[in-house]
Computed example of a mutant assay.
Amino acid sequence: MEYFIQQTINGLSVGSIYALIALGYTMVYGIIKLINFAHGDVFMFGAFAGLYVTKGLEKYNLPSVLVFLIALVFAMGTSALLGMVIERTAYRPLRAASRIAVLITAVGVSFLLENGGIFIVGPQAKGFPEIIAKKQINLFGSVQIDTNQIMILMLTILLMILLHYIVQKTKTGKAMRAVSFDMEAARLMGINVDRTISSTFAIGSSLAAAAGVIFGMTYNSVDPLMGVLPGLKAFVAAVLGGIGSIPGALVGGLLLGTVETGISSIGYSLWRDGVAFAVLILILIFKPSGLFGKNVREKV
């Protein structure tokens, strides 16, 4: 039982990263029915933004918690700006185009960000400094949790609460819900649809950046192609939870992280990626709407 609890804690830490990335997928899809495959590379951009800010602050001998907060806010802010630029330049001109054209564009933007990152920072992995020193805390028996895992879980919960407040209580959130329900009716009611979609990209990109900083602190290494696999797994998490559902993205990410960790813990670590995509296949076969999604009939 102690071993099971320990692996569950480890899985929730990994799943929190997937959940934060998956939120961007599910928010954008809920608004404009677009799978933004460049989202994983926004996650990469956020990780590098956090890395260079952290290195730039090393000479000032600031408290580690303050360095972390500055790096996190800077990464989230710059990634939000990047998300808005991507939406404005790549997706908005194709708003009336076919879905396949927009999907191909998303893949193209992904390649652009990856190769742009290789051109600017080089293909080699960069070491991510340990901003906050890890300390092991013994819960009971052989079950342990480190301060980094606690920080990941607390930050994920905090960002989810903040996102829930924005979507449910703010004017921007109400506009997002209206646009996701009926874009043309929302436009007729005076909602600035373009601004609302841009805000959605900004919020989703900032959450991916937070995941990027957390990833760098956890694995102490970042590279220009680091967003490919986590981005695809976050997409699996979004589909698992029900793409378009914000609670579904959170639950899907946590479940996927727990399943992956469980597979690794029983000696099949080489299969963890395959299992993640096997989950996608099974969900698409048996429950395409996901755990929290709803089957919606479309008129032909």
Rank of each mutant, 00 (worst) to 15 (best):
L72C: 05
I17F: 03
L72F: 04
I197D: 04
N115Y: 15
R187T: 01
A96F: 10
I21E: 00
L240F: 05
G117Y: 01
G108R: 12
G248T: 13
M27W: 03
R177V: 04
L188G: 04
A185H: 00
S221L: 14
V14I: 15
N220H: 14
A96P: 02
S269R: 13
S269I: 11
F74E: 12
V279G: 11
L225T: 15
G242E: 06
A178T: 05
M1G: 15
F43S: 04
L51E: 03
Y18L: 09
Q6I: 12
E87S: 07
L20G: 09
K55V: 10
S264I: 09
V279M: 08
V53E: 03
L282K: 05
S110G: 13
L103F: 15
T258Q: 08
G216R: 10
L72R: 09
A38M: 05
Y52C: 03
L81T: 11
I283F: 00
V42R: 10
G77D: 00
L103I: 08
T26C: 06
G274T: 12
M84G: 12
E260C: 09
Y219H: 07
I285A: 13
F37S: 02
R95W: 08
E87R: 09
K287G: 06
G248N: 12
L113R: 06
L20D: 04
D273C: 06
Q144M: 09
Q136D: 15
L51D: 00
I17P: 03
I132K: 04
A209Q: 05
G11C: 13
L51A: 04
P288C: 07
Y268E: 08
R195C: 00
L250D: 08
I86S: 11
F292D: 01
P123N: 14
N115T: 07
S142P: 03
K135H: 13
L270T: 15
L12I: 14
L270F: 13
M151P: 00
V179I: 08
V167M: 14
D146V: 05
R99V: 13
M217H: 02
L240I: 05
K299T: 12
K126I: 03
I285F: 12
I203A: 09
E58G: 01
A185C: 10
A133W: 01
G204W: 10
F201S: 09
G108N: 09
A90Q: 08
N36Y: 03
Q144T: 14
Y52P: 01
M160D: 00
I120P: 00
G212K: 14
N36F: 01
A80Q: 11
L62G: 06
A276L: 07
L207V: 09
Q144D: 05
A80E: 07
Y18K: 08
V73E: 04
D146Q: 07
L153C: 02
I283D: 01
A186R: 14
V239F: 07
A125E: 09
H39Y: 01
G11I: 11
I118T: 06
S13V: 15
I161H: 02
A80F: 04
I145K: 07
E87W: 01
G56M: 09
P288T: 06
Q144H: 14
V85D: 05
L188Y: 03
N192K: 15
G212F: 11
R92W: 03
T105V: 12
L240P: 03
M226N: 10
L225N: 15
L232W: 11
E87H: 13
A80W: 05
A133H: 09
G290C: 07
I118D: 00
V121G: 00
A106Y: 01
V65K: 02
S64N: 14
H164N: 11
R177M: 12
